[in-house]
């Protein structure tokens, strides 16, 4: 939730802001890529029976985390560009006459080595941002279960409206969804190999 959303909430005396949350632009959102489908979905009107409130809130969480993740990615991109620029400047410095002493060359190589390490860490941090997409998919699975519970209660009571929101393709289970990079690689590779062998045979 950003400041404009908090302000809207306070102005409404604790009621949710009427403006769809995804439509509220963050100050730095102009440089961020366009929101993907989940972010756009937040702009949808809540369900008429009010049942979609929790679901809508969860959709907001995923939209906001995606937007914020992209801001982190922007910063990492910027750090990467600055380090590349620094490396270029140091490379240029190596050719200067004053930098030909053994001590200067050693220092320059140490700076280059540290720059490479920073660059690698930036890439690693970018790769770790996969957690956002994985968390989003886990939340989508929870939303799916919430809808099922809601519809079950409507059936049971014989009153109320069933959730009519679009049910996007979601993962069949979150039990096997990994959090550590490549933790399912060996399993997936074994299934692929078995499939290919079976096909050949």
């Amino acid at each position: 939730m950003d400041q404009s959303e908090i302000d809207a909430l306070l102005a409404g005396g604790g009621k949710s802001p009427k403006k769809p949350k995804a439509a509220v632009k963050a100050p730095a959102a102009e440089s961020a890529p366009a929101p993907s489908a989940p972010a756009q979905a937040v702009a949808a009107e809540p369900h008429k029976d009010g049942s979609g409130h929790v679901i809508s809130e969860l959709d907001t969480v995923t939209a906001v985390t995606e937007r914020e993740s992209n801001k982190v990615m922007d910063q990492l991109d910027q750090i990467g560009r600055l380090v590349a620029r620094q490396q270029q400047l140091v490379t240029d410095m190596m050719t200067h006459e004053g930098a030909q002493t053994a001590g200067a060359q050693k220092a320059i190589h140490e700076v280059m080595s540290a720059s490479k390490e920073i660059q690698d860490k930036v890439f690693e941090a970018m790769d770790l941002m996969q957690f956002q997409d994985i968390t989003r998919q886990k939340l989508e699975r929870i939303v799916y279960h919430l809808r099922q519970i809601h519809d079950y209660i409507v059936d049971l009571l014989g009153t109320g409206l069933k959730s009519d929101a679009e049910r996007p393709s979601i993962s069949h289970t979150i039990a096997q969804t990994g959090t550590t990079p490549d933790e399912n690689k060996a399993h997936a590779d074994a299934v692929i190999e078995a499939f290919k062998s079976q096909k050949k045979g």
Binding site: D127, T177, G178, P181, D182, A188, I192
Partner: peptide, 22 residues
């Protein structure tokens, strides 16, 4: 990451499969 999902994707025509996070 379920086995049946991977098989279904291969049957649909994917050549290879990576499970997130990678």
């Amino acid at each position: 990451a379920a086995k049946e999902d991977i098989v279904e994707a291969l049957q649909a025509g994917v050549n290879n499969y990576v499970v997130k996070p990678f």
